[in-house]
C-alpha cells in the first residue's frame, strides 16, 4: 500500500458516500445515471469474485464489501425506492449501456494476463469500468445544470483512478517486474474520459458557481 493508492481508495469511497448521502438523505437521484450505476455494480461483482477465496487484508475485504454493497444498494434505491425513483430522469438516461458490456467481454476474452475464469472476468471489469461513466457523462450534457453533490460525485469518481495511475507509477519504480499494461491502459482511458468534465468542473469551481 502506498499513499497514492490509499488516497485513491479514499477518493473512491468518498464518491460513493457522496452519492449515498444525496440519495439517502434528500431522497433524490436527479442528474444521476442509473445505467452508470448498473455498470458499476457489474464492475464490482466481476472484479471481487475472489472476495471469499483469496484474503489480502481486512482493509481490502472491508472496502470490497463497501463498494459491492453501496453499488447494489444505489441501483436498488434508484429502481425500486418510490421517492427516489420519482426523481430519476428516465427520458434523458438513454445511453445503450448494454452495448458496452459485450465488447468489453469479447476484449477480455482476447486480451488478458491469464486465461482463467476469474482473470478474464477481472479483466472484463477493468474494461467495463473504463467506459462505465459514459452514460453519466451523456446525461450530464443533456441535463446541462447539475447540483453540487452530483458534480462532486463525478469529480471524485474520476479522480480516484487518476490517483491509481500515480500508484502504478510508484509501484513500477519500487517493485521489480511490476508491469501491467492492460490495467494501465484501461485506467488511462478511464481517466481521460473525464478530461472535459474536469475542465468544466474547475472552471465552475474556481468561478464558485455550480457545475454547468
Amino acid at each position: 500500500m502506498n499513499i497514492f493508492r490509499l488516497a485513491g481508495d479514499m477518493t473512491h469511497l468518498a464518491s460513493v458516500l457522496v452519492l449515498l448521502l444525496k440519495i439517502h438523505t434528500i431522497k433524490s437521484c436527479a442528474g444521476v445515471s442509473l445505467r452508470t450505476q448498473e455498470l458499476y455494480a457489474i464492475v464490482f461483482a466481476t472484479r471481487y469474485l475472489d472476495i471469499f477465496t483469496s484474503f489480502v487484508s481486512v482493509y481490502n475485504t472491508f472496502m470490497k464489501l463497501v463498494f459491492l454493497g453501496s453499488s447494489f444498494s444505489i441501483v436498488w434505491y434508484m429502481r425500486y425506492h418510490k421517492a427516489v425513483h420519482r426523481t430519476y430522469d428516465r427520458e434523458q438516461d438513454t445511453f445503450r449501456h448494454w452495448f458496452l458490456v459485450l465488447p468489453c467481454l469479447v476484449l477480455a476474452l482476447l486480451i488478458h494476463e491469464k486465461f482463467t475464469f476469474l482473470e478474464v472476468l477481472w479483466t472484463f471489469s477493468l474494461y467495463l469500468e473504463a467506459v462505465a461513466i459514459l452514460p453519466q457523462l451523456v446525461l450530464l450534457q443533456r441535463t446541462r445544470n447539475i447540483d453540487n453533490l452530483t458534480g462532486q460525485y463525478i469529480f471524485l469518481l474520476g479522480g480516484y483512478r487518476g490517483l491509481y495511475i500515480l500508484n502504478w507509477i510508484y509501484r513500477y519504480f519500487t517493485e521489480p517486474h511490476f508491469v501491467h499494461w492492460i490495467t494501465w491502459i484501461a485506467g488511462l482511458v478511464q481517466t481521460l474520459l473525464y478530461a472535459d468534465f474536469f475542465y468544466y468542473y474547475f472552471l465552475r469551481f474556481i468561478g464558485g458557481r455550480g457545475v454547468e
Binding site: R5, V56, H177
Partner: peptide, 10 residues
Amino acid sequence: PTSTTLKDEL
C-alpha cells in the same frame, strides 16, 4: 522473475 500482482488492489 516473480510476477507481481494487482489483486491486492481494489
